[in-house]
Amino acid sequence: MVTARSARFTESTRGRLRRINLITSLPPVVFAALLLLYLDSRTWWHALVLAPGVVAALVAFERWTADDLARVALPCLVVAAAVWPVGALVTGSPNAWWGVCAVGSLALREVRRRVLAAVALLAYVAAVGATRLLVERDDVRQVLVAYVLVPAALTVVVTLMTVVGERFYDLIRELEQTREREAELAVVRERFRFASDLHDIQGHTLHVVKLKIALAQKLLVRDTVRAEKELRETYALVSDTIAQTKELAHAQRRLNLTAEIENAKNLFEAAGIRVRVTREGEVDSRVGELLGQVLRETTTNILRHAQATQVQITLSASGITIVNDGATGDEPTELSGLSVLGQRVADDGGELTVRQQDGRFRTAATFPTAHAGTPSTMGRDDR
């Protein structure tokens, strides 16, 4: 079963690959199409006859980048295939084969017997080119070169380049999907860590409660005072566990900022994201716990909502700043976890700011310098 998250990742991967294809390949394809049209069109009606082949090739290429070629492959192939014999027999256009070659090479991915289809495409281009001999017999050698050998050779080259391009983008697609699976796995690990923390809080407590209740049962007859003491301690222990569980649920459990930075770095690296950590100063332990919560929440948000490739974490004497690329959309996503933390930071005299600009997302939690401890160590950890 494909989860909604996996579907979102797949759509995101397709979008990025489509943009790569359009940016890198569409301009030269359009240039080649217009150049060939210019070279072969000696009158306006020549251009009118040859234009459908060019349009069919461009439509097929655009749909190929969108992974939607199957829907238009046959109509585009029919149009482009019809232009080539008209160009060879009527307009005398030796480059009219380009449309059927472009569409045919792209459409190979839609058929099972690709080798047979490629041979058929080559044979069609050469055979139609040879029909030029029916209307032009003065220079047989020139006709064979211009209408048969050159189109056939270039068809082979274009087909091979298309196949290689397909393999290249398949590799990119696999790498993107692997990266996204790593990011999803990192989120799962974070959830497992939460479950582990919950187990640490409740597992030990429940075991102790069980022992104390068993002891109280034994003491009810011979030592009621001690039994009452054991029950009071059990009640206090359960109350404390409930409080710790609530703190954990709201990401308020005491955190070690250094450990959180290391954990965030490990999570990002596991997801294939380059991370750079800069320590310009140190903060006191009370502020450090809150900054650790901000870092943990931001780390989870980056892994869940962004398509990040780089993350910069900067710790200063006045707070922490996390900047990542890969932000989607024009407006910052509503992040409920950061909203709750923003109120807690404000209650403690600080400020939490979230800003998105030019595909970069910046989360910063700052406190007045009075909260900052004197930096005992200064360092930088770049990775």
Rank of each mutant, 00 (worst) to 15 (best):
A66H: 08
H46V: 06
S6I: 12
L69G: 09
Q293F: 02
V100W: 00
T234R: 00
L36W: 01
S105L: 10
T43N: 11
R14T: 02
Y147M: 08
L295W: 03
A102Q: 02
L290W: 03
A57D: 04
L69W: 08
M378Y: 03
N256E: 15
I213S: 13
I213V: 15
L154C: 09
A56H: 02
I322P: 05
A346C: 01
R109L: 10
A346G: 02
V54A: 15
L257T: 06
I201M: 04
D325F: 10
T159K: 09
P85T: 11
V79Q: 01
T205I: 09
V209C: 13
D382P: 00
T278I: 07
L144M: 13
N256K: 08
R14D: 07
A271W: 02
D138A: 10
W98K: 00
T298I: 10
L160V: 15
D223N: 15
A251V: 14
L22Y: 04
T162N: 13
A81D: 03
T234A: 09
A227P: 08
T155I: 05
G104C: 08
P94E: 10
Y38W: 13
R141W: 11
D68V: 00
L108S: 06
K265L: 03
V158D: 06
R63I: 00
V29C: 05
V90I: 14
D358M: 09
E11F: 12
H250N: 13
F61E: 11
D347A: 15
T155G: 10
T300S: 12
W44I: 13
R42K: 08
D68C: 01
G53N: 07
F9K: 13
L338D: 07
A66T: 02
V323K: 01
Y147F: 12
